[in-house]
Structures are given as structure tokens and as C-alpha cells.
């Protein structure tokens, strides 16, 4: 760590706490490249990394009162950056679901009822399934106009809702691989 830089950042933050906008702007502009470099280690996608960098700037702004001059600035800053990166990755994990495709499952394919072989789902239809609801790992057709097969990731939590949907005849519900008894944890829907 560069001691001059650390002292300068600490001084600027102290001035910012007193309401000095120029020192604050200088501080934010100087820390930004370091923040971006750190974020890109974990988030290679440039647009997402820039989003997280902005989140960090806002978090620094909101938490600026929690910094004390006798404290080192960089650990304070990087604690906020790590938290923002962690939150982003956790949020992304929630959006995409915790598991990959089921073994032997072709993601994005529907089953042709006549031949019982997978056929590609049109792009427009795929979009209707995305983003996937939390806990669902895949959705695919089994046949008929409305029949779709839903493979659930953490659907045991939402078992009651899933089984009700299944009994309506609109969908057929499968379960996560960890649940060894098919549909048992969903209330015995078949």
C-alpha cells in the first residue's frame, strides 16, 4: 500500500466528512480505477462491473460517516467493495438458479409428443420462461397444447404451490435430483 496515497485518501475523506465537495470528488475519481480493477477480478463483464462500481460509490457515500481518521482508509474502502461484489454475485446466483441442467436434460428443448424426441423451442417462447423463477432450474414441454414439464431446483420449499399447479393439469412438475422420491416432497402430485 502506498503510504502517501493512503494519507491523501484519508485526508480527503476527512475533508469530505466536513462537507468539502472538491476533496470528495477528487477522492471518488482517484479511488474509482482501483475499485474497478478489484471488481473485475471477480466480475469480468464490463457492464456489470461498472454497475457494481457505481454501487460502491453510492455505498461509500452512504457510509462515509463510518470512517474515522485514525483508521486506515483502504481496508474501509475494500470492505465496502467486497460487500458490493458479494451482493452482486449472490443476486446473480439467485437469478440464474443454483443448479445446472438435470442429468440427461437438454436445456431449451421441448419434447415432440409424436416422436418423443426433443425439438428446439422458438426463441420467443424461450423468452416467456426467462428469467427463471427462483428455485426452478428448467422448464420444458411434455406434450399437448399447455403441457410443460417443470424441473424444480428448490421447489420443496414451494411444494404446495407447485403441486396445486400440477393438479390443474397445466404443468407436470419434476423435482430436484436431491429429492430421491419423485414428487414426494411436492405433496404426491403426479
Amino acid at each position: 500500500m502506498n503510504p502517501d496515497r493512503a494519507a491523501r485518501w484519508s485526508e480527503w475523506m476527512g475533508a469530505a466528512q466536513g462537507g468539502d465537495g472538491r476533496a470528495y470528488e477528487a477522492l471518488l475519481r482517484e479511488i474509482l480505477p482501483h475499485v474497478r480493477d478489484f471488481i473485475r477480478i471477480y466480475i469480468p463483464d464490463e457492464a456489470s462491473a461498472e454497475d457494481v462500481a457505481k454501487t460502491v460509490l453510492l455505498s461509500v457515500h452512504r457510509a462515509r460517516h463510518s470512517y474515522r481518521r485514525e483508521q486506515q482508509f483502504e481496508p474501509w474502502l475494500y470492505a465496502i467493495v467486497r460487500k458490493a461484489v458479494f451482493d452482486f454475485r449472490r443476486g446473480r446466483g439467485r437469478r440464474t438458479g443454483p443448479e445446472g441442467p438435470q442429468p440427461g436434460e437438454k436445456v431449451g428443448a421441448e419434447i415432440d409428443p409424436a416422436s418423443d424426441r426433443p425439438v428446439e423451442i422458438p426463441e420467443q417462447k424461450k423468452r416467456t420462461f426467462l428469467p427463471k423463477p427462483r428455485g426452478l432450474t428448467s422448464v420444458r414441454r411434455t406434450g399437448g397444447a399447455e403441457g410443460v414439464r417443470v424441473s424444480a431446483g428448490r421447489s420443496c420449499v414451494n411444494g404446495r404451490r407447485a403441486s396445486r399447479t400440477a393438479s390443474s393439469g397445466a404443468v407436470e412438475v419434476g423435482v430436484e435430483p436431491a429429492c430421491r422420491e419423485p414428487l414426494g416432497c411436492l405433496g404426491g402430485a403426479s
Binding site: 469530505a16 466528512q17 466536513g18 462537507g19 468539502d20 465537495g21 472538491r22 470528495y24 470528488e25 471518488l28 475519481r29 474509482l32 457492464a47 461498472e50 454497475d51 462500481a53 457505481k54 460509490l57 453510492l58 457515500h61 462515509r64 460517516h65 463510518s66 470512517y67 474515522r68 481518521r69
Partner: peptide, 26 residues
Amino acid sequence: MSRDSTDILISSLARDLKPVRPVRPL
């Protein structure tokens, strides 16, 4: 998200800056 918008964000944060009282020692 472009970097221009990040620059705008920094300027606006600095412009609207209000003094704050640092937290007490732990």
C-alpha cells in the same frame, strides 16, 4: 452502463455533499 454516467454520478454526489459527523470510537 457507460463510464460517462459514472462520472455524472461522482459529480452529483460531490455537488450534493453534506457534512456528516463521524461515528464515535468503537
